[in-house]
């Protein structure tokens, strides 16, 4: 294969990998913001926090897999505490209450990590067998990016199966669309909400861990990716996992190919895309409600 094609493929893999990380983050947000309607400005902060946990775990244990396992779980648990003790208390204030609360929380997390870990970038190492390139069908692929794509796909499948094929998923979807009714049926809706919030935060945590070896860990980690995740949820449509997947991949590819073809305009493309979609369809591409 000639060099140009190889470069396009490599760009594609990069874009896809970023898109999938974005999807992990955004699908967590689509659960929380899209389905439950909780405006969570701190979602990306959890993502960043998890990357720091990952870094810390690696310092302690030297093991990436342990970090991948535990950092998101701790982050998810932290999310549950936030839902239980903070967000639930401001429910009656609606979106504005959630905005202020989670924005405040985001500030605290941001400043907190600066106090604990300082402002410089921290490296996260992946096991040697995940580094380097692998040769498949005559082309070279970066192993770690394939790993990211793989792990995201697995999570996507599990999430969709749980949400759309199990009784639990049915309860969650019902609780989200009509909380009072489901409550009346004897299901503990607050617990359902707390769990969904925890799972959403956990997914942000997974995204934070898998991206940390690529971007390293630093306080500004949440800014760009977090904004992109919000765009994905809004454009994909509130509560739509499929929409989030599609728009994440579009975002990722726009990012990597955009840089190549029109480097100046690349970041603008995503926002123009968002403005156009939301102007025509305020509920997003696959959303059913505003």
């Amino acid at each position: 294969m000639d060099a140009t094609t190889a470069m396009y493929v490599a760009q594609g893999i990069h874009g896809l990998a970023y898109g999938m990380v974005l999807f992990l983050l955004a699908s967590g947000l689509t659960l929380i913001f899209g389905m439950m309607g909780i405006l969570n400005m701190a979602h990306a902060s959890f993502f960043m926090l998890s990357a720091y946990f990952c870094y810390q775990f690696q310092i302690w244990t030297g093991n990436f897999w342990l970090a991948l396992l535990f950092a998101p779980v701790i982050t998810g648990f932290f999310g549950i505490l936030v839902e239980r003790f903070l967000l639930r208390k401001v429910q009656r204030l609606g979106h504005i209450g959630q905005l202020i609360l989670t924005a405040g929380l985001g500030l605290i997390i941001l400043e907190g990590v600066k106090v604990i870990w300082g402002t410089e970038s921290k490296p996260v190492l992946v096991p040697t067998y995940l580094q380097g390139l692998v040769n498949l069908a005559g082309m070279e692929y970066p192993v770690y990016r394939l790993f990211i794509i793989g792990i995201s796909l697995i999570l996507l499948i599990i999430l969709s199966l749980i949400l759309y094929k199990t009784r639990l998923g049915m309860v969650v979807r019902a609780a989200v669309s009509d909380a009072d009714m489901v409550n009346a049926l004897g299901i503990n809706v607050p617990v359902v909400f707390m769990t969904v919030f925890g799972v959403g935060t956990w997914m942000a945590g997974v995204a934070g861990v898998v991206i940390s070896p690529i971007l390293t860990v630093f306080p500004g980690l949440a800014d760009q990716v977090g904004m992109d995740a919000f765009i994905v949820v809004c454009v994909g449509g509130f509560g739509s996992i499929g929409g989030a997947l599609l728009v994440s991949i579009i975002c990722g590819l726009l990012n990597s190919y955009g840089v190549q073809f029109f480097s100046q305009l690349a970041p603008i493309l995503i926002f123009i895309f968002m403005v156009v979609v939301l102007t025509i369809r305020p509920m997003g591409l696959f959303g059913e409600r505003e």
Partner: peptide, 18 residues
């Protein structure tokens, strides 16, 4: 850490003095 204090105040305001 001005922002830390701001964050705390925002949370306190919204929880106790909406």
């Amino acid at each position: 850490r001005v922002e830390l204090v701001m964050g705390l105040i925002l949370i306190l305001v919204i929880m106790y003095a909406p």
